[in-house]
């Protein structure tokens, strides 16, 4: 393996890693603010991608009962799809999570798995089993950096992930609402005593995470086929990324975890065997969890100690 090929794999890993990082971020935002592990996070990505595809290109729906061809401009489609998925996130919180007042991790996990199954089923009814693809965001020849070839979509994925990270950082650090969200993740009771409307913040966390998830699904949709069941694996990988480094409660840990996971996965597929590509994520997960039971950065320790 030449250094150029290695670099090529690294770029590919960075691209898919950005997606994992975004989904992982969604897990962390919801978990920090609400204490819930939302295993339907990958479904937000799937919905975002499929809705964007439907809005921008001709798509047969409901078992080919009718075909829509709105052919909206890509930007409009992306914005609308993201907003719609944010609405789904709000509904998930308002209808289910708010009603389920339980501290049991098992019950919480089953509830969000139920949500994931229902969303997947709805997608199956609307879009069927066919996978779809978005066109690349911008046309043009691939870009050569050193010996590696970068497609324009790779740049879009990495670039939009980076932009989202920066925007979210500014939102959490520089705005009042962002600070309120952070207060909720430090201590919900204290936040309430300080006059923060905690249920509103929880709703906002779900809306925000749904939006992040949807965007992740949309930017990766030109690179990979999206179908009703694509969200499951994306969600699982995002979960692993969120948990391995940051123990599910550290945003930076989630981003680093996602990028590392993507790179590791692609390197393993390129160097060892592509058949076991998906096993790498979980092998890493199991090993890391066994060495450090609360993630490498260990921010989860306090929450765990309080929660169990």
């Amino acid at each position: 393996m030449t250094p150029d090929q290695l670099f090529q794999l690294f770029i590919a890993g960075l691209t898919i890693g950005s997606i994992y990082a975004l989904i992982a971020l969604g897990f962390v935002v919801i978990h920090n603010v609400t204490g819930v592990i939302n295993l339907a996070q990958g479904e937000f990505a799937m919905l975002g991608a499929l809705i964007a595809i439907t809005l921008t290109s001709e798509t047969p729906l409901f078992n080919r009962a009718f075909t829509v061809s709105w052919n909206l401009p890509l930007v409009v489609g992306i914005v609308l799809a993201t907003l719609l998925v944010m609405g789904v996130g709000a509904l998930v919180y308002l209808i289910v999570i708010r009603a389920a007042r339980t501290d049991s991790v098992i019950i919480q996990i089953i509830i969000t798995i139920g949500i994931a199954i229902a969303l997947r089923g709805i997608a199956l009814i609307i879009w069927g089993t066919d996978p779809y693809r978005l066109p690349e965001f911008s046309e043009g020849p691939p870009i050569h950096i050193g010996g590696a070839v970068l497609t324009r979509q790779d740049l879009w994925v990495i670039g939009s992930a980076l932009a989202l990270f920066i925007l979210l950082y500014l939102f959490f650090q520089r705005t009042f609402i962002g600070a309120s969200l952070r207060a909720c993740s430090v201590n919900r009771t204290a936040a309430r005593l300080m006059g923060i409307n905690v249920p509103h913040m929880m709703l906002l966390a779900f809306v925000l995470s749904a939006g992040i998830g949807a965007l992740a699904g949309i930017v990766i949709a030109p690179k990979t086929f999206m179908g009703y069941d694509t969200g499951t694996y994306l969600g699982l990988k995002g979960f692993v990324a969120a948990i391995v480094i940051g123990g599910l409660s550290d945003e930076r840990g989630a981003i680093i975890g996602g990028l590392l996971l993507g790179i590791l996965e692609i390197l393993a597929a390129g160097l060892i065997s592509s058949g076991y590509k998906d096993a790498i994520a979980f092998l890493v997960l199991v090993v890391v969890l066994l060495v450090q039971t609360t993630g490498i950065l260990r921010r989860g320790t306090r929450r765990e100690a309080a929660g169990v």
């Binding site: 592990i37 991790v105 098992i106 996990i109 699982l236 979960f239 692993v240 948990i243 599910l248 998906d278 096993a279 994520a281 979980f282 092998l283 997960l285 199991v286 969890l289 066994l290 039971t293 609360t294 765990e304 929660g307 169990v308």
Partner: peptide, 18 residues
């Protein structure tokens, strides 16, 4: 079994994938 709660859940899920 040193793991708890969702950490154990995701580790067992990982085993299933493997």
């Amino acid at each position: 079994l040193r793991l708890r709660g969702h950490f154990l859940a995701v580790a067992t899920l990982g085993l299933n994938v493997i």
